[in-house]
């Protein structure tokens, strides 16, 4: 265990714990945007910046990625940190004025959109959570295209992505609602593709796309054979309910 002092409070954490997790464990709130608990961190939004004092050397770091390896102290609210976050939020609100999450941050940090630098309004903040989610699922259907200011989330060649299974994880993790999908009857539309939805044989909910089930089957993650994908199955909730019920009768 390593002692770390955050905003004057000292706690002991396991080596390698990120500064963000350490701060959260004692109730210190640090704003994040590209961070998502279920995804590998990327540190690209720079919003979670905090100042670290490594034996007298002070520097700004991304707390979501900074691993605690020695006894350090950190300041999450000083002038330098707030200035850095305000700078980032200002840039974001200039481009993403309609994103609710960004609007809230702008209010919190007291910045307004600068009309002179107002660029074409966009919902995407290029945090890449969607790309990392797709990567983590093993589908890799989307990625970042172009570079610099023109960077955007895209499927290869801007075509309907072949490896997409319609799981909508990308939309699920999107912090601004840029990525959307539509379920219409037993059809899901996302990324310019249509997918058949599977219906739970117990509760009737549309719980996944058939391609998603097939993908899970291919990964060997669940006992799903690709050839009988049309077989009626149970959704996650119902499967758990049935299992739990078994335990209940047992006791």
């Amino acid at each position: 265990m390593i002692g770390v002092t955050i905003d004057g409070r000292t706690i002991a954490v396991e080596e390698g714990t990120t500064l963000l997790d350490a701060a959260r464990s004692i109730g210190i709130k640090i704003p994040t945007l590209c961070h998502h608990d279920g995804l590998p961190p990327d540190g690209n939004c720079r919003l979670c910046a905090v100042e670290v004092d490594e034996r007298g050397r002070k520097k700004l770091v991304s707390s979501c990625m900074y691993p605690i390896k020695s006894e350090i102290s950190a300041d999450t609210k000083n002038e330098r940190v707030i200035a850095a976050r305000r700078f980032v939020v200002q840039l974001l609100i200039n481009r993403n004025p309609k994103a609710i999450a960004i609007g809230e941050l702008a209010k919190e940090y007291g910045v307004v959109r600068e009309e002179r630098f107002a660029l074409e309004a966009d919902l995407c903040v290029r945090c890449g959570r969607c790309v990392r989610a797709c990567e983590s699922n093993g589908t890799d259907a989307i990625g970042m295209a172009r570079a610099g200011f023109e960077r955007y989330v895209a499927a290869p060649y801007d075509e309907a992505p072949e490896s997409c299974v319609g799981c909508a994880s990308c939309a699920e993790v999107c912090p601004t609602g840029k990525i959307t999908y539509k379920d219409d009857g037993l059809i899901r539309k996302i990324w310019n593709r249509t997918f058949d939805l599977a219906v739970c044989r117990r509760c009737g909910s549309r719980y996944a796309t058939k391609e998603q089930l097939a993908h899970i089957g291919r990964l060997g993650a669940a006992n799903i054979a690709v050839e009988d994908i049309d077989e009626p199955r149970l959704c996650d909730k119902c499967r758990k309910a049935i299992y739990t019920a078994k335990f209940k009768t047992g006791s």
């Binding site: 980032v88 200011f149 023109e150």
Partner: peptide, 18 residues
């Protein structure tokens, strides 16, 4: 640098452009 920024982080992507 606007042309060569990779665009990964907000400060460089949006800041250099501004």
């Amino acid at each position: 640098l606007v042309g060569e920024s990779c665009g990964k982080c907000v400060p460089c992507r949006e800041g250099v452009k501004k």
